Simulated assay, not measured.
Amino acid sequence: MIDPKPLTPAERELAALDCDRVLVGFQFKPSPLEIGRLTVTIRSHGERLHASMLALPPKNRTRRSDAALRDWGDLIAQGPRPVPLGAWTYLRALARTVRGFLEVLADADAAKGGVR
């Protein structure tokens, strides 16, 4: 079950750091076992952030927020492709979308003058 509470500032920072760990060059690509572990971690961050994105008031919705929500939906529906590097490519796409969620939510926080 997904925790419906928004991520705390510390949890958002952890999510950002996890995205940084994923979005590395090919020479730093994690092992298949680590890719699986990171996929679970990034999906968990994304699911909680997705709930926060859906809760944004209409005035905070942008093209970027709508695109990130569409991307998340597509990624969750499709899953990784059964091709070489498919799991790593999928993980990276999840991480880019989570990073987008974090940036949209930070912008919304700044617009209202605080941290969610």
Rank of each mutant, 00 (worst) to 15 (best):
T62N: 08
L94R: 10
I76F: 00
G25V: 08
R81A: 15
A87G: 07
R99A: 13
A10I: 02
A93R: 15
V104D: 09
D74F: 08
A51T: 11
R43M: 11
V24I: 07
A93F: 06
P80K: 12
L17E: 06
L54C: 09
L69Q: 09
L14Q: 12
A110S: 02
L105Q: 11
K59W: 12
T62R: 11
A16G: 13
Q27M: 08
K5P: 00
L33K: 05
P30W: 14
F101D: 04
M1V: 01
L49G: 08
M53C: 15
P4T: 01
L105W: 08
P84F: 10
R12Y: 03
S65V: 14
F101K: 05
V98D: 01
P84Q: 14
R81F: 01
G25Q: 06
L14V: 00
R116Q: 06
I35S: 11
D107F: 04
L49C: 02
E11Q: 15
D18H: 13
V83M: 13
P32T: 03
M1C: 03
G113W: 09
A51G: 06
R81H: 02
A87D: 12
A10Q: 09
R21H: 13
R64E: 15
V98P: 02
G113I: 04
C19W: 08
L85I: 09
R63Y: 10
A16H: 12
L14Y: 01
E11R: 04
A67G: 03
T39N: 07
E11N: 01
V83N: 05
M53P: 12
V83S: 08
A68G: 00
D3V: 00
A93P: 01
V115I: 04
L91K: 06
T89I: 12
F101W: 03
K29V: 10
I76N: 01
A87E: 15
R99Y: 09
E13W: 06
A15D: 03
I35P: 05
R99V: 09
I76H: 02
S65W: 11
A51L: 07
P58L: 15
D109C: 11
E47M: 15
C19L: 05
L49K: 02
P57E: 10
L38M: 14
A95D: 05
R99T: 15
G25L: 07
P80L: 03
P84V: 13
